[in-house]
Design a protein around this nucleic acid. Sequence first.
RNA 1: GCCUCUUUAGCUCAGUUGGUAGAGCAGCUCAUUCGUAAUGAGCAGGUCGUCGGUUCAAGUCCGAUGAGAGGCUCCA
Length: 645
Amino acid sequence: MRNITFPDGSVKSYEDDVTPLQIAESISPRLASDVLAASVNGAMYDLKRPINTDASVKFYKWEDDEAKNVFWHSSAHLMAEAIEVLYPGTKFGIGPAIDNGFYYDIDLEGKTISDSDFKKIEDKMLELARQKQEFARKDVSKAEALELFKEKGDEYKLELIDELEDGTISLYSCGQYTDLCRGPHLKDTSVIKAIKITSVAGAYWRGDEKRPMLTRIYGITFPKMKLLKEYLAMMEEAKKRDHRKIGKELELFAFSPKVGAGLPLWLPRGTELRSRLEAFLIKVQKKYHYLQVMTPHIGQKELYVTSGHYAKYGKDSFQPIHTPQKGEEFLLKPMNCPHHCEIYRLKPHSYKELPLRYAEFGTVYRYEQSGELHGLTRVRGFTQDDAHIFCRPDQLMDEFMKVVDIVLYIFKVLDFPEYTAQISLRDKNNKEKYIGSDENWDKSEQAIIEAAKAKGLKTTTKYGEAAFYGPKLDFMVKDAIGRKWQLGTIQVDYNLPERFELEYIGEDDKKHRPIMIHRAPFGSMERFIAVLIENTAGKFPLWLTPDQAIILPISEKYNEYAKKVGELLNNSDIRASVDDRNETIGKKIRDSELKRIPFSLIVGEKEENTSTVSVRKQGDGDKGVMTIDEFAKVVNDAVKEELSK
RNA sequence: GCCUCUUUAGCUCAGUUGGUAGAGCAGCUCAUUCGUAAUGAGCAGGUCGUCGGUUCAAGUCCGAUGAGAGGCUCCA
């Protein structure tokens, strides 16, 4: 007999070799039909795999991420089976579940798959799924596994098996298809009811650009057709929030192939928004005693040789600018730190002056690979809300935490609830990627880990994600369709102060080396605004939006009054304009709604006679009549509230 | 940079098996002077991203290239 413990702590006895599915059946038929996955003693487990010890068991239904993971992993196998039937001779790479669905990397040996083939694959998958194929597990020796895949000619699988330890290898078969797999899987394919192949892409084998490029096919599946329809509708909605689409609609920014790919043009309305964001941050930074500076867009090549950036990125950057005078070489500035280091070096510093905090909205240029460019989130010319803090070792922790405060304050004011904090450390097995001594790296990494902990941040740690001169604390936010982007970043750097020979005179009258903190709470104005657009769907907070109100005269007869209202509101610091086109009021309202202007003020005979406006809130309809002063107060109070979060 | 795909008017899109382009919106003109999401009529607007090839004939087929999309790699 086996004692099985349930999550609520209760214990029941079952026969030897009982399966999770049988246990579920013993509890309720409903559970048995809903359960998709189970864990046994904390490890995910096949529903039909016998349990041969006492164990604690937990069941997972569709609502649980664990179940989705198993569901999509099994779906990847199902897709592989369909592909093997449709494209015999295909070689298989890996096929995992991901956040939204699954993919499989395959080698079609020159054949291609395109959108038009998706239907065929979906149909074949459905056909196979309906056969209620079981996922049969088989534990095999390494030799057996190698034998099997050698026979099939699956060279990628052989490479994977080669790295596994004998005795830990299992195979799963469904229908004709057998795959190297750790499992677990669904009990059979019949629960996969709705299938969508979503896209096809190239992907390097094992993520290495020197290895062959495989065809990656993405798909998503559901246990009910209704769920698939909901998912597709949700994706459609998400695409409407795309910053590239809204940026065009609201005339915030644009690109011109003639100016160059990845070089954004900021239009008047976008510039207004951006300037307001900059002013906001300058104000916050002033409280924290930052000093604004400005530095040129180019610098001598020598500057970047000193910083180490030239050695690291020189050949992949915009190439040096040559001058009429022979031998002069300037680089477009790819970052601001070397310039700020030179400002620091201008004169000797006392320990009493530190920390020194130089801030700049510094526009930088990086030659990103053409395939990497993406709207405003990945561009070749962008403006960092940069600052470099030069401090003493005893000030490092406090300074770092104050920067965290600024980042969190910005996220709060701008309503970014879903960020993740990532500690990006070096990859110790890949030391040639970094400059500086192990000792300095250890100190920097320790400082970040401790500061994040002291701030109570929930963090994830990624190795190999550090900058070449130091580790980072990165703040990541998702865009409309779930892609993660790095916004705010805080970096501890012992290396550039050394390379630039930065010094201060200590209390002991001796020379010491300051530590540098690089930080950008927004990351870049471009990327931050892109994510802001997608998070707000273009409905910006009142304090930030280019136009707060638009005055809509009922007919041209009331244009004069409308202009008067506009002037009065402008005098009360409200950004309002007049739509004096010869259009019907319905048309003007529609346009202002589509432009997401927070308030539309309708004025006609009634309003003119009583010196009032009829207020309409974007997305929320008629709010009734107010005097101009009353409306101004509503707006100004709302702005104050937004900024006092 | 790599893989797959897209590229037609300012915008969103049609364009059948190759026979030298259409709609709606926006724009302009005129009429209308309007009460909470599109007033009506008329006009104008395109060397079909660019370059080259196949063909009697190319928006349509082929090649190169620019730009864009989704991924991969990269991201100071």
